[in-house]
């Protein structure tokens, strides 16, 4: 294509000023602040807890934090991907419980490999159910996954009769337990999944489509993006990651127990939003969510070490989540984000 030739009078008639540099820079500075804010919160927490407790800033405890944040991180990755498209998955906690039970039962009867494979597979099936109802029956994700929240948890209870199922030593526990060079194996798995999701979000077409669908579904459709398929994939991924998280949690606690996944749900959503992924979709990303996960993990760990009253701990987590979101959220849109 040749460069468009502008007649001189046209150029002269251009009245609209180009975006002024000051405005552009102000915008950029603010973007940096949104990225930096969770980091600042994190540093403040680390400094604060280091002062409050001598044990906090020791290699052992830091590894402990890593291990305890592994499960939350994996769940947060799935939540991030779902939220980038502007949907939400409320069923991840229940999917975790169900997958953990299926894996624990399989570990008893069919062996280690079956357990390791079955957990993500159960997650995948749950995600497929969610995804199909959301993308092809066009039901709102909030509603469908709220249904999943009850149904998958109920199914897990049905399978287990409400009894915990322990994981025998050896087998799964051996493969995923322990540490490599001092780093817990489950943390390594979580980091591996993190790398995969980060690469997927940044360097694949699927990743770009996530942002497009979350940014404006209609424009995405008009651009030729298979919006429904992307939504299905997103829930599949969320399901698989919840299944993987189930495996990690199973190894950590050495048993599947009723409602084991439930506390993770709101923590994961909180971590993702705190990290800066918008609930309405289109902005943020998996890297952002690391910050949110770390803030929650450090807070939980540090408060125990600092001997904070357990009830006060919940109050503090609540306050920090809201404060962090208030600091990091981009309020560029006029409307209230629901």
């Amino acid at each position: 294509m040749t460069k468009p030739s502008l007649d001189p009078p046209v150029a002269a008639r251009r009245t609209e000023p180009a975006v002024s540099p000051t405005r552009g820079q102000a915008g950029r500075a603010r973007v940096n602040w949104y990225v930096a804010a969770p980091f600042v919160v994190l540093v403040l927490l680390i400094v604060g807890f280091s002062i409050a407790s001598p044990i906090f800033f020791t290699p052992d405890n830091l590894l402990n934090i890593m291990q305890s944040s592994a499960v939350l991180l994996v769940l947060a990755l799935g939540t991030t991907v779902v939220m980038l498209t502007g949907s939400i998955d409320l069923s991840i906690g229940s999917v975790l419980t169900l997958s953990a039970y299926v894996a624990a039962i399989a570990a008893q009867s069919a062996g280690t490999t079956a357990a390791v494979l079955l957990a993500p597979l159960v997650g995948l099936v749950c995600g497929a159910l969610n995804g199909a109802l959301i993308s092809y029956a066009r039901l709102p994700s909030f509603l469908v996954t709220l249904g999943g929240y009850f149904a998958f948890d109920g199914l897990a209870g049905y399978l287990s009769d409400g009894q915990p199922i322990g994981l025998a030593y050896g087998g799964v526990a051996e493969g995923f337990g322990g540490s490599v060079g001092g780093v817990p194996v489950i943390s390594l798995w979580a980091i591996g999944l993190l790398v995969l999701v980060v690469i997927a979000a940044r360097y694949t077409r699927f990743g770009r489509y996530l942002y497009a669908v979350g940014g404006n579904e209609r424009t995405a459709r008009l651009t030729g993006i298979p919006v429904r398929r992307i939504k299905l994939y997103v829930f599949l991924l969320s399901g698989v990651l919840a299944g993987a998280a189930a495996l990690l949690q199973l190894v950590r606690t050495a048993s599947a127990s009723p409602g084991m996944g439930e506390p993770f749900l709101l923590l994961a959503i909180g971590a993702v939003v705190m990290g800066g992924t918008s609930l309405s979709g289109g902005s943020g990303g998996p890297v952002h969510s690391i910050m949110g996960v770390l803030v929650i993990a450090i807070l939980a760990n540090g408060m125990v070490l600092a001997n904070v009253n357990p009830y006060a701990q919940n109050v503090i987590i609540g306050v920090v989540v809201v404060a962090a979101v208030a600091l990091t959220m981009k309020r560029t849109r006029d409307s209230i984000v629901k």
């Binding site: 770009r208 942002y211 497009a212 940014g215 404006n216 424009t219 995405a220 651009t223």
Partner: peptide
């Protein structure tokens, strides 16, 4: 309403 992605930068809007 449906011309562009308001969450994205200029270059992301084009590159998609």
């Amino acid at each position: 309403v449906d011309g562009f992605f308001d969450t994205m930068t200029v270059s992301d809007n084009i590159a998609i």
